[in-house]
Nucleic acid binder design. Structure first.
Lengths: 229, 229
DNA sequence: AGGGCTATATTTAGCTT
DNA sequence: AAAGCTAAATATAGCCC
């Protein structure tokens, strides 16, 4: 298996496989309760990430644990074919030389990240988590809109034909239900808190991954990077 | 899709799916030249990681962009999208509330009809009609709910595949990539001379590129300590 | 805990629109 | 790019070892 030659094919394949990969990752989470962080940089340098409970939490955990030794069960009985062991040994030697600096760097990173995040908490509008949900909802709701429109039209025709019928308004003023219980607690333009588990309980994705009862901050899914190209 | 009930089955599934996930990740790397970092914590808190060129480099790159708030770079498109989502959110809320009240009304009507049918025979037709209407409406709305669930499920993929919807990060990432890495953490456990071809030949990924069982090449793969659970 | 096996289910490369 | 389609490749749940 080698890098694809055709550029446009590669692009499509990347997109499809990336989707598949993220899906598999999320399935592993929901099916097995595993915590996962997945970060992908496209050849074009766009970022995509997924995390359960969220990317940063897992990364932190990973970084914190990094210095740990792989005690015992080193199941290196895991691989398919090996080109040459000499290479591996050479690289292993190199790594051994880098271990110390890697460790320091990891610690430093974790510390720095914590500091940075604390500093910018207010500015970080959307967590990876709510991103996905909102995107998904956007798509779903756009479809919903169409359906509602169709139903509304149909209902109008029926009403016209049967004046005695009650009219049910699809979009009444503010028919808040007890289901909706959330108030933005910060003035952001894209408040993740709009979508609450209670609102969605009937919309839980089949694989249950997205709508975590605990909230919307459980998972990140999507490119972290801006820029359109 | 829910968390597996059977514990031992879950364990097996976790193991198999984890393998599959790592394989997919590696394939994405070699096939498309993408950079990937994948960290998985088993339910039993064991770490498994994979990275190309290495976990830390990718994490580094991710972290460099992640903290980036929407500094003035709030693109028009993003704003539009945000508005749209918010709007859709409102609609969903309304529809949800509407369904709820419609249900109540339908139930109430049914009850009322039953109670008064005998005495108010002349009113029956009207009640009947509106009740039918309401039932239809109720059914329609429940269909909508299912539809949303389906769409949302499908949307998960789309969301992952639609990077242009995510614009969090604005800082270009500076990253170095040596082809070395991860699982850095125990030089002593696995001295170079410990690695033998016989240990590896059956477990290397088909593409052979990514998976370096000793975890020091470009990938770490294996429990942080002990068994899987 | 893995490996092997199999019937089934999912994924995906390549096309077409 | 995006969506749908299909044949063919892969993944995987459930068993048994």
């Amino acid at each position: 298996m080698k890098k694809m030659s055709n550029e446009s094919n590669l692009q499509v394949t990347f997109s499809k496989r990336r989707s598949g990969l993220f899906k598999k990752a999320s399935e592993l989470c929901t099916l097995c309760g595993a915590d996962v962080a997945l970060v992908v940089f496209s050849p074009g340098d766009k970022v995509f990430s997924f995390g359960h409970p969220n990317v940063d939490a897992v990364i932190d955990r990973y970084l914190a644990r990094a210095p740990q030794p792989n005690t015992g069960t080193m199941h290196f009985i895991e691989a398919h074919r090996v080109a040459n062991v000499r290479d591996l040994n050479v690289q292993l030697t190199q790594i051994n030389g880098q271990l110390e600096s890697e460790r320091k760097r990891a610690d430093e990173l974790a510390r720095l990240k914590r500091a940075t995040q604390a500093q910018l908490w207010w500015a970080s509008p959307i967590d990876d988590m709510s991103r996905v949900q909102l995107d998904q909802y956007k798509v779903a709701l756009e479809e919903l809109k169409k359906h509602v429109a169709r139903l509304a039209d149909r209902a109008m025709l029926q009403s016209a034909a049967n004046p005695s019928h009650h009219h049910h308004h699809f979009f009444p003023g503010a028919s808040s239900s007890s289901n909706v219980v959330n108030q933005p607690h910060n003035p952001q333009m894209f408040p993740p808190q709009m979508i609450q588990p209670s609102m969605l309980q009937n919309y839980m994705f089949p694989d249950g991954t997205i709508m975590h009862p605990n909230g919307f901050n459980n998972m990140g899914f999507g490119p972290g990077n801006g820029g359109f190209f």
